[in-house]
Simulated assay, not measured.
Amino acid sequence: MEREDRIAFGMTGRQLTILTVAALVLYAAWTALARVVHPLVFVAAAVPILGTAFFLAVGRRDGISLDRWLLAGIRHRRARHQLVPAEGPIAPAPAWVTTTRGPGDRLPLPAPLRLPATGITADGLIDLGSDGTTGLVAASTVAFGLRTPAEQNGLVAGFARWLHSLDGPAQILVRAQRVDLTHVADRILAHAPNLPHPALDEAARSHAAFLDELAARRELLHRHVTVAVRSTRSPGHTAHQAAEAVRALSGCEVAASVLDPGDAAATLAGALNPSAASSPSSLPLAGGRGRAVPDTDLMVADLDGNEFQ
């Protein structure tokens, strides 16, 4: 998906442009230095340049071309890393305020924080200003490895139908967030004495002890799967795309629902603070309504990859 077209020799237009520019620069240099530089010396100097250009053109890092990766690194290096929420430029502090680390070393001023999202609409869509709107869909996972080959082919075919139906950008975000089960054990212990039979009381206390032991021995993670669909046409078209994503994903046994404004805000807050631990009762579950744990199955995994239902 979103692969660049191959123009010639199995290379994209961007790759051919990099190599062409490098070749033209070397040709211009040879034209200017042909009478004063021996050809072997020029070839020895040109080989590293051509090799670097070829490496930039065909190399990849972190899923992107190497030239884009280097440009992103340069922009990151030159950008300010201290950002604050402000409407306009940051005014410098008065001269009498001590803002230096040492003699002649002033601390740089922070830059205004510019977030791409300007708000959340009443329909739960994220307003991106001139970039349109984005709808968020909470999705469940599918036990793909436990299915037969025929069932796996059916799931892949259903997922492919959704991909072919897309007419705009889409993103699938999978996050793992730490889960604290101790408060669930406390709730079970609090309700255990009110159970109608002593055996149920004993089973509840045993389960609470298991949760406490599990929380002490393992660092549990809860997987969040969020599908984001974006459209620059209108909010109504974005909402339609989100609803179509729910319908299409249901064909491959994925339980999905469009997030309402509250759940969309919680998902954004969790994405901006991924290290914050969450309790199971406050997690935006696949149903998108933040239901309590007793009403739904919660699948968690520890850092070793072991899953617990």
Score class of each variant (00 low, 15 high):
Glu2Asp: 15
Arg3Met: 11
Glu4Ile: 07
Asp5Val: 14
Asp5Trp: 14
Ile7Met: 08
Gly10Leu: 13
Gly13Val: 13
Arg14Met: 13
Arg14Cys: 13
Gln15Thr: 03
Leu24Ser: 12
Leu26Trp: 06
Leu26Met: 13
Tyr27Met: 10
Ala29Glu: 07
Ala29Ile: 11
Ala34His: 11
Arg35Ile: 09
Val36Asp: 08
Val37Lys: 02
Ala44Met: 12
Ala45Ser: 09
Val47Leu: 15
Val47Phe: 12
Leu50His: 01
Thr52Arg: 08
Val58Pro: 02
Ser65Asp: 13
Leu66Lys: 05
Arg68Cys: 04
Trp69Thr: 10
Leu70Lys: 08
Ile74Phe: 12
Ala79Leu: 05
Arg80Trp: 10
Arg80Leu: 11
Gln82Trp: 15
Val84Asp: 07
Ala86Asp: 00
Gly88Phe: 15
Pro94Ile: 05
Ala95Phe: 10
Ala95Ser: 14
Val97Thr: 04
Gly102Lys: 03
Arg106Gln: 11
Leu107Gly: 02
Leu107Met: 09
Pro112Glu: 08
Leu113Trp: 10
Leu115Asn: 07
Leu115Gly: 04
Thr118Glu: 10
Gly119Lys: 04
Asp123Val: 05
Gly124Leu: 00
Ile126Lys: 01
Leu128Tyr: 11
Gly129Arg: 06
Ser130Ile: 11
Ser130Phe: 05
Asp131Tyr: 08
Gly132Ala: 04
Thr134Ala: 11
Val142Met: 06
Gly145Pro: 09
Arg147Val: 01
Asn153Leu: 05
Leu155Gly: 06
Leu155Ala: 10
Val156Cys: 08
Gly158Val: 03
Gly158Leu: 03
Arg161Asp: 07
Trp162Phe: 14
His164Val: 13
Asp167Trp: 04
Ala170Asn: 07
Ala170Met: 10
Val174Ser: 10
Gln177Pro: 00
Arg178Val: 12
Arg178Thr: 10
Val179Tyr: 05
Asp180Tyr: 03
Leu181Met: 05
Leu181Ser: 00
Leu181Asn: 00
Arg187Cys: 04
Ala190Arg: 15
His191Ala: 11
Pro193Gly: 02
His197Ile: 08
Leu200Phe: 06
Ala203Gly: 09
Ala204Asp: 01
Arg205Glu: 06
Ser206Ile: 04
Ala209Leu: 14
Leu211Ala: 05
Leu214Pro: 03
Ala215Phe: 04
Ala215Cys: 15
Ala216His: 10
Arg217Thr: 09
Arg217Trp: 02
Leu220Cys: 04
Leu220Ala: 00
Val225Gly: 03
Val225Leu: 15
Thr226Gln: 09
Thr232Glu: 11
Arg233Thr: 12
Ser234Cys: 11
Pro235Asp: 06
Thr238Val: 12
Ala239Tyr: 05
Ala245Leu: 11
Leu249Asn: 02
Leu249Thr: 00
Ser250Glu: 12
Glu253Thr: 09
Val254Cys: 05
Ala255His: 14
Leu259Gly: 00
Gly262Ala: 15
Ala264Ile: 02
Ala264Pro: 01
Ala265Tyr: 00
Thr267Pro: 00
Thr267Gln: 05
Leu268Ala: 00
Gly270Ala: 11
Leu272Ser: 01
Ala277Thr: 08
Ser278Trp: 08
Pro280His: 00
Ser281Trp: 13
Leu283Lys: 05
Leu285Tyr: 14
Gly287Ala: 09
Gly288Thr: 02
Gly288Cys: 03
Gly288Val: 00
Arg289Gln: 10
Val293Gly: 04
Pro294Trp: 12
Thr296Arg: 12
Leu298Gly: 01
Leu298Ala: 11
Val300Glu: 01
Val300Ile: 13
Leu303Ala: 09
Asp304Phe: 06
Asn306Gln: 10
Asn306Trp: 12
Asn306Val: 09
Glu307His: 07
Phe308Thr: 03
